[in-house]
Design a protein around this nucleic acid. Structure first.
Lengths: 142, 142
DNA sequence: TTGACTGCAAAGTGTTTGCAGCGTC
DNA sequence: GACGCTGCAAACACTTTGCAGTCAA
């Protein structure tokens, strides 16, 4: 997987001022396998002695959201939002209700259904959130 | 639509003690067209001089959730949960990002895709949440 | 140099919890 | 009469906001 997103590039391309904090947060998001909460990002950064204030992370994610660079979802366990770079395209996750781990699903199972939905309900769809939960293979073995 | 859910019946059938508060909350849920937040329920009841404490509503919804009598979703606007009776079966909603109104969609667009998802990811799916948003017909005209 | 960004602290919002009293069965 | 339910108030967790100092361009 060519998981290398150049934080600097991304910022420049979207006319966003480059700062240490922004590069750091973007890097963490780019390296993540699963969506991260604000706290996840904060803790991860702290672990590398690269602190960024919580408010700064919140403000940054809001901006990235507006620019469409990030997707926001709501973690089914633990009432909080999580975020993932949308650079790799729209995606959804399967979350295990036992261990809490999320894994990305291949493609969007709704892609084909959206057109029909729009027509049936006379509604212009601009986005959707899907969260699927259950038991992952590892937890099921136990 | 046979929208008449007998609150008393539902409670008795599931071995839940009957109280004024529980009947009231169930009735409000049964009458609702769209999912309601805890605050929605609280305000609606207050309007009819039938106050029920917020904590009571929270506790009750948690219990109904465990018994599978209610579905919980997360409103895409305004960070909060909403609830709907699942007596009519599993359902999803289209939420207008302009006026905030939710309308129920016919059927579940994922029903057919879930089996494939389970197989592809070696994951036992026990539930999912889907929220679709965009612009409703009314707002689009304006 | 200037406007945008950051950190800090405080406030806001939705939700949960402990406890004493009340009501249902 | 016993146990579970309710209301109240306080605590909690996540998120947002105001403001003054700092930094990238």
């Amino acid at each position: 997987m060519t998981n290398k997103v150049q934080a600097g590039d991304l910022l420049r391309r979207h006319g966003i001022k480059k700062t240490r904090q922004r590069e750091a947060v973007l890097r963490i998001l780019a390296e993540a396998e699963a969506p991260l909460s604000v706290d996840n990002i904060h803790v991860t950064l702290r672990r590398e002695d690269n602190t960024v204030n919580l408010s700064t992370i919140y403000r940054m994610l809001e901006m990235l959201l507006e620019k469409g660079l990030v997707e926001q979802m709501h973690h089914p366990l633990g009432n909080r939002f999580t975020y993932a770079l949308s650079a790799y395209g729209h995606s959804h996750h399967l979350t295990c209700t036992r261990c809490g781990v999320s894994t990305r699903m291949n493609g969007c199972p709704l892609a084909s259904a959206l057109g029909l939905l729009e027509a049936n309900h006379n509604f212009r769809i601009t986005g959707h959130r899907l969260e699927v939960f259950g038991e992952c293979a590892t937890c099921r073995v136990k």
